[in-house]
Simulated assay, not measured.
Amino acid sequence: MIKYEIPGLLKKHENLIKGTFRYSNEISFKREETKPWDSKLGGCPYLKSVEEYPTDEAGEPMLFLAQINMADLENLAELPEKGLLQFYVANTDLFGLEDPVLVKYIEDYEENEEHIVKKHPYENEEYKGNLPFSDSGKMYFKTREMPMSSSLDLFQEIFANKLSEAEYEKLSEDCYSSDSRVGGYPYFVQNDYIGFDDDDFLLLQLDIDEECGIMFGDSGNCVFSIPKDALKNRDFSKVVYDWQCC
């Protein structure tokens, strides 16, 4: 597990900082073949039939960004213990930013490729060119214990008036929370427009990655979050999606 060691300058604020700790599962990617039920970036999602593939409000096939197999994750009690979570956005120039997104939860799935769609039904060259990554790949996870991201409005509310200027600057540098992950805290390139707080859960952050060429706009990333109450009720219609770039 990756742990945050509180530096000497901030030791007197240890309890305050530790009070914000959350577990995350940090994602690394490898360009390799995946099974239909694997945790993956792009490629073909788990589908029993082509007709199951999601479409947007105009009836056009959506972009499949990622799939998470719950069995691959650790220390994230808020999530279901089993099943697949799939992330789709509208196929637009803005990667679906101004359109409804779909996060689909499949509780039960079978590990039998004979009865599953093996090839993405809409993955032609135009489709691939509209994706925010150049290559699909398999996801690997490593657990991290992380303090609150300094890009959140809540970070400033908690720490700004309790730390000296030097302490606040040091903690802000340490809590630069880029990289891809499930759980923990998001990193916002510009501003915390969605107002991520203690009652929200980070379902997925996809950040710049060289292995699979991930990039939203100019050095940007994307965030999928959900209120914890909605997550508890498996109501993924409440997911909030945002992507920002420099």
Rank of each mutant, 00 (worst) to 15 (best):
C212G: 00
Y122N: 04
C222Q: 05
L203K: 09
L152H: 11
S134M: 04
D108C: 11
A166W: 12
A160G: 01
L154A: 13
E111N: 10
Y193V: 09
N221E: 03
C175I: 02
I214M: 04
F224R: 02
K228M: 10
E110P: 00
L171V: 05
Y122V: 04
P227F: 05
S219D: 09
D135A: 04
A166M: 15
N191E: 13
I106S: 07
I194H: 09
E167A: 05
E169N: 15
I158Y: 00
G184H: 08
S151V: 03
F133Y: 15
K142L: 06
S225C: 14
G137N: 00
V223P: 01
E111I: 10
A160I: 06
D192Q: 14
F155D: 09
L171D: 05
Y193Q: 10
N191I: 10
D199S: 15
G183D: 03
G195H: 10
D199E: 14
E126Y: 09
N161T: 11
E165V: 15
S134R: 12
I158G: 02
C212L: 00
N221S: 09
P132T: 02
I116W: 05
I158H: 09
I214P: 07
K142W: 02
Q205S: 02
E126D: 07
G137I: 00
H115S: 07
S177A: 15
E173D: 13
E173W: 15
D209W: 02
A166S: 14
E145G: 03
E113L: 08
Y176F: 11
Y140N: 09
M139L: 08
L171Y: 07
L163R: 12
N112V: 10
E210A: 04
I208A: 01
D207S: 11
E169A: 15
G129V: 01
